[in-house]
Each structure stands twice: as C-alpha cells, then as structure tokens.
C-alpha cells in the first residue's frame, strides 16, 4: 500500500500545466485533492509516471455565479458547498448533497472538478451534474472545448476527457424559484459511497403542474443515468403522492443495475425506488 515511484510537478499557471500535460500524455496525471488518486496509487491500481499538481494555480480557484450559471473552478473543494454557494434551488441542492460526500477532512481537500474527472459511478456531484445539465470547460495546450454532461460520462471512471486535457471548470444552471430539487441517497455508514442515490428536479408551472422533470440516479450503474421514462411520467399533472410513487417504481425498473456480492440487483432496484420517491417527496415538502 505504498505508491509506486513517480515524478512530481507543481506548475504555477494553467499554461504551464497544459504544457506538462501535453508533454506527458498518457503517463501524466493531474493531482487535485488527491482523495481518489492517491488511494488508487497506494493500491497500485493506478501508476502514473508523473503527477501534475494543480493546487498552486490561482486561475483555477474560483466559484461564482455568472450569466445564470454557477461556475466552479478546478480548485473548489467539496467543503465549499456545505453552505449554499448561491441563493436558490441549485445552491440548496449542492449543500444538501455535500454532507453525504465522505468525511469532513476529505471534503476539505477533494474537489468538485476532481469528482467529475474521476467519474465514480456513486459520485454525488456527477449525479447532480447529469440531472441539472452541467457543462464542462476542458482545456488543452492550444485548445478549449465545452462538453455537456450528457456526453461526459462514458463508463466506470471514464469520461470524455482526453489524457492531455484539464477540466478547468464545471458550470451548472442556477435554477429559478419555480424549480423543486430533491436529493436522497442510501449508504451503510455515514460518509460511504452510496449504494443508490437519486437527484430530482421538477419545474412547476403556476397551476402547480409539472412542466419539466429531471431524475438522475447514481451508484446503480457504470455511470450516473437519467430515469427519463420516470421523469416524463410526471409531466403535465400535479405531483401527487401517487404519481411520485408511480414514477419511483418506473425509475426502479428502467435500468440495468450493477451487482456485487453485497448488493444483488433486486436490492439495488428496491433502493432506487425508495430513494427516487424520497427525493421527489422531499423536494416538495419544503
């Protein structure tokens, strides 16, 4: 459980970091909070030849509301979200989820963008990114692109990010007051990765009918997934307890669960049903 040997670089600027990434390619890895990377290195599941530590790059250290979106720079730590970073449903949802991410010491180091880059299937931030339609700003030497959340997650721990690219910023829409966001997750111990989670967002029209609905599930498949049929079933009517329950049942049936020795598939479905209903009900209770 000791890391294999590696070179260490601590660039002071974004440009310097991108040059290092270009030079090291597959062999280089960005070190952000280190809360996922270092343990995988200690288990020798990951053996980057070079670590490029971005913690000294001031340009990446920001988190602000701008143009109707929340812009989260690569050095924004999980702990930053424990209290709402912006007024309205988006900030509240992030705060609701933050307390479920690991433990306090880990939250003071781990980064939002690191979670998106690492793409653990049970990451709270990844699930929220998919539910709300996040946009990733990705840089490489001499280039920049924006990747929508729908195209970001490819499989377990795999995203659209290329080895020479840096995830500089993630932006989330700042939802208006007509949105109701919900969050629920299940884990066996406080701070563990969830066995299932649901993030829900409903927009209610003035008549109280559901005008838009998004339901994302995390920890249940190789990537976070959208429960589209379940979300669609809520449209055009008031969100009554019966309809929420029916939507949760649809969510539980509409995916192929990952299975392991501790979590059989039917149990995973039970959890999705319960978490989806609780997220939906919780979002409307307030």
């Amino acid at each position: 459980m000791k890391c294999p040997p590696f070179d260490y670089h601590a660039p002071r600027s974004q440009a310097e970091a991108l040059a290092l990434l270009a030079r090291h390619g597959e062999e280089g890895k960005i070190l952000a909070g280190g809360q996922s990377l270092v343990p995988t290195m200690a288990f020798r599941l990951s053996r980057p030849a070079s670590l490029i530590d971005i913690n000294r790059i001031a340009e990446l250290d920001h988190c602000r509301a701008e143009g109707g979106r929340l812009r989260i720079g690569a050095l924004t730590r999980h702990a930053r979200f424990e209290r709402p970073v912006a007024p309205g449903p988006t900030g509240a949802l992030l705060a609701r989820a933050a307390e479920h991410i690991a433990h306090a010491p880990i939250r003071t180091r781990g980064t939002f963008c690191g979670s998106l880059a690492h793409a653990d299937p049970a990451s709270e931030w990844c699930c929220i990114a998919l539910a709300l339609g996040a946009e990733m700003r990705v840089l490489r030497e001499g280039g920049e692109r924006l990747v929508p959340a729908a195209d970001w997650f490819q499989s377990v721990f795999t995203t659209a990010l290329a080895p020479d690219e840096l995830l500089a910023e993630v932006s989330l829409p700042l939802l208006g007051p007509d949105w109701r966001c919900g969050f629920a997750e299940f884990n066996r111990r406080a701070g563990d990765f969830a066995l299932a989670m649901a993030v829900t967002a409903l927009r209610l029209d003035p008549a109280g009918h559901v005008a838009e609905a998004r339901i994302a599930l995390g920890g249940v498949a190789g990537t976070p997934i959208l429960a589209e049929t379940a979300a669609a079933s809520l449209l055009g009517a008031p969100p009554t307890p019966e309809r929420l329950r029916a939507a949760a049942a649809l969510a539980a049936e509409g995916f192929e669960p990952t299975e392991d020795a501790q979590v059989p598939a039917d149990y995973r479905r039970d959890l999705v049903r319960a978490m989806t209903r609780r997220a939906l009900e919780g979002s409307l209770a307030a």
Binding site: R188, F193, D260, A261
Partner: peptide, 16 residues
Amino acid sequence: PLTGSLADYLPPSAAE
C-alpha cells in the same frame, strides 16, 4: 477475499 479494504469491510464510525 472480496473485502480487502475498509471500503468493503465496514467497521462502524461514530455515526453508527
């Protein structure tokens, strides 16, 4: 063995 780390073998924390 399937429980080779404390992510799989679960001693309690104070919260439990």
